[in-house]
Amino acid sequence: MASQSSQGSKLSSQEQSALISDIVLYILSQDHTKYPIKRQDIVKNVLKTHGRHYKHIMNEAAHVLTEIFGMKLVEIEHSSNMKQYILVNNEQFLRDVSDLKWPEEVEAQQVLLMLLLSLIFMSGGVVKEEVMSSFLTRLGIMNGRKSHEYFGDVWKLLTVEFVRQMYVEYVRIPESNPPKYEFRWGHRAKGEVSRRELLNFVSLVYGCDPKNWVTQYQEVLQAESEKEKKREEDGK
């Protein structure tokens, strides 16, 4: 069957839906790593000889992921010849996160991630690495490069794992010499993490009203209206 259709240019609708559902299953099966999915891997593992139908099939698969599972397949610009995607969950759905079950190490990472994203958010969107490490040291989460018994190798998580998962960006400050780095929110965090929830969390810690953080509160409202606008555009 495969050889036939690679010669012919058209796929039967059955072949097409089989490929779409295979791609959806493949993308979902990779989701637990949170790593970007490369175009070449999708072709190699699923489409195989049907590579020429890539664009059409991927559009349909993205549609299925949104309409059935409520997740968005976002294309990430990496370099011109390497397309990759991340699967971003609906930020509203993360309310259910306490009802989901993850392995213990993943739960630890989620806690760490919330702290780090909160710090970046409250600091106006960017945090220098030395500020980050002193913050985590003060919280007793980091102690030099010693592995923490609950969180593990914190610095490696921050600068390698979370970067790869696109929760944070860890980039060199231009023209710094010796090179210095800073943290920002990554692509996935922007799509998936609710700023309002974060601000509520921080306010709870400080025992104050979220509206007292004027700048951050404005940002919450702005991000929400942007997302609302985007949703309406998508819905059309």
Binding site: E60, H63, I68, D96
Partner: peptide, 23 residues
């Protein structure tokens, strides 16, 4: 093109996501 019935809403997507996670 996939068509999802109009009575399939966020509630269903969230319930499905939980089941996919917990099985």
């Amino acid at each position: 093109m996939l068509r999802v019935p109009s009575n399939y809403r966020d509630l269903h997507k969230r319930f499905l996501q939980i089941l996919m996670n917990r099985r």
